[in-house]
Design a protein around this nucleic acid. Structure first.
Lengths: 244, 244
DNA sequence: CGTAAAATTGAGCTGTCTCAATCAATGTGG
DNA sequence: CCACATTGATTGAGACAGCTCAATTTTACG
C-alpha cells in the first residue's frame, strides 16, 4: 500500500522548479514568500517527494501544512466501493491540490503522483495569515478559486455531455491550455505523462476504449504520443472533435 | 427568450422564506444582516422573482449584487453547442448559487428556476465587507465552500463512475440529505419538483432512460413520486442501489 | 536478459440512446 | 365550462457506443 513518501525536513529542494511561472506562484511570490520579501521571516515549510504512482496524501490526512506541487504531475482521485476511480483533477506544477484546502482541516480526497513529484508544504496558519491579510493576494486567490471552479465545471460538462472522443479531446486541450499559461507548450508539443488508465479514470471511460479512441486520433493524424509527451498535429481538427 | 424576471426594488418580500433554517442563513444572520444586528445599517438589497422554468441570471450577468435564493428551487446549468445541457448543481432555498460568486464579478453560468422562486440580491461590496471582516463568518464561509466542493466532487464521481440507476438514486439521496439539514423532510417524504428532463440533465442520461429507471424504482417499491414530491419507501434498498 | 506494466487488438455483449407513438396532466381562450 | 394546445410521462422497437473478457505485443526497467 505504501503511501511511500519521503519527507525531507525543511529543505524544499525543488529541482527544476517551475513554481515561478505559474499563476499561484505569483500569489505566493507577491505575498512575500519568496525573493520579493527577503527580509521578513519566511513561512515555515517542509518538502514531500514521491515516486510516480504513489499516494502523496491520504484521505483525512491533516491539512495543518498546505501543499503546493513544485515538480511533477499529481491527481486528486475518488474511489468507489465498486472498484472504479474518478480523477477529479490533475494537479500541475505550481498548483494547490485544491483551493478548498485553504478552508479545510484535512484532505477530503487522496492525492496521487502521476510522475515523480515534489511538494512544498506551507504551515497552514502562517500561509493563511499571509494570504488573507493582503488585499491584493485575496483578489488573486479569489481569481484562482474562480478558475478552479470553472475547470471543475468544464470537466463535469465533458463527462456528462460528450462522446468518448469529445471527452478525450477536451482533456488534451484543457491540459494544453493550462500548460500553455506556464510556457510549457512548444510547437504544440508538451509533456503528457498520463497512462491510458489515468485518462480513463478522468473521463469516465474504460482503458480499452481510451486506447481505441487514441488510436483513432493518431491514425487520423491529429495527435502523436511518444516518450510521455504529446504533439497536437492538427489543432483545428482536434478542437472540432472536442465539440462532440 | 424572456429571462422574464421581475425586480421589486429594495423590498425583499420573501413569502414563506426558509432562509432562517439554512446553514448560510446562519452566516448571514450571525453576520448581522438580520435581527441580530438591528441597529447597524443593513446591507442594501433588492429582490428578484421568477416563475418556474425561467432564466433568473444569464451567463455574464454582472455580479455586483450577490443573490441568495429565498424561496423555490433553482439550478446552475451549462449548455453545449451540440444542444445538450448539464445541470451543475441544484440551488435550494437559503443557498448562494455558488460561493465562487463571492470572488467573481459576473455569473459564469446561467441560473434557471426549477419552481417559482425568489432571490435576495445583496450589494456585493457591502456583503463581502461584512462577511470577510468577521473571523467567525470567514470560518463558516470556509466550511460552506468546502461543503460545496464536496458536493460537486460527489456529482462528478456519480456521473463518471455509476450506472444510470446509481446516478438517479444518488441524486435523490443527495437532495434528501440536503433537505434533511433544513428540516424539510418529513417521514422520508419531501418536495421534488424536478422534471424528468432535469434529472436527465443532472445525471448525464436521456429523459427516456430516466423515465424507465424511475419506473423500475417505483415498481420495485423503493420510491413514490406524486404531486411534485417524493417519498422514499425503502431507504436501505435505495442506498444499496446508489452504490452501483 | 527477464520480468512486469502498459498498450493494442479481437469478438461478442449490453446499457443506454434514438426515434416515434401514445397517454396524461395542465392550462388557456372562447 | 368545454375544446384545444402544450408540456410532461410512458412505452415499444431497434440501433449503437462503449463495455467485458481475453489474448498478444510492446515498452520500461532492474
Amino acid at each position: 500500500m505504501s503511501s511511500v513518501v519521503r519527507s525531507t525536513g525543511t529543505k524544499p529542494g525543488c529541482g527544476n522548479c517551475v513554481l515561478r511561472s505559474s499563476g499561484i506562484c505569483q500569489v505566493l511570490i507577491d505575498s512575500g514568500l519568496e525573493a520579493a520579501r527577503p527580509t521578513a521571516a519566511p513561512i515555515r515549510q517542509s518538502a514531500v517527494t514521491a515516486n510516480s504512482g504513489r499516494t502523496i496524501f491520504r484521505r483525512h490526512d491533516p491539512l495543518d501544512r498546505i501543499p503546493v506541487l513544485c515538480d511533477g504531475w499529481a491527481a486528486v482521485v475518488a474511489s468507489l466501493s465498486n472498484g472504479r476511480r474518478q480523477i477529479l483533477s490533475f494537479v500541475l506544477p505550481g498548483e494547490f491540490t485544491s483551493y478548498a484546502a485553504l478552508f479545510d482541516d484535512r484532505h477530503r480526497q487522496p492525492v496521487i503522483s502521476i510522475t515523480a513529484s515534489s511538494c512544498r508544504c506551507f504551515q497552514a496558519a502562517e500561509l493563511k495569515h499571509v494570504l488573507f491579510s493582503d488585499a491584493g493576494a485575496i483578489g488573486r486567490i479569489g481569481a484562482a478559486i474562480v478558475a478552479e471552479k470553472q475547470r471543475a465545471d468544464r470537466l463535469m460538462v465533458d463527462v456528462g455531455c460528450r462522446s468518448a472522443t469529445g471527452r478525450i479531446a477536451c482533456l488534451i486541450l484543457d491540459l494544453r491550455d493550462r500548460l500553455m499559461e506556464r510556457n510549457l507548450v512548444q510547437d504544440e508539443s508538451f509533456e503528457f505523462p498520463l497512462r491510458q488508465t489515468d485518462i480513463a479514470d478522468a473521463t469516465g471511460l474504460t482503458p480499452v476504449h481510451v486506447n481505441r479512441v487514441l488510436g483513432e486520433l493518431r491514425r487520423e493524424g491529429l495527435i502523436q504520443i511518444a516518450d510521455r509527451s504529446i504533439r497536437i498535429l492538427s489543432l483545428d481538427s482536434l478542437q472540432s472533435m472536442a465539440e462532440q
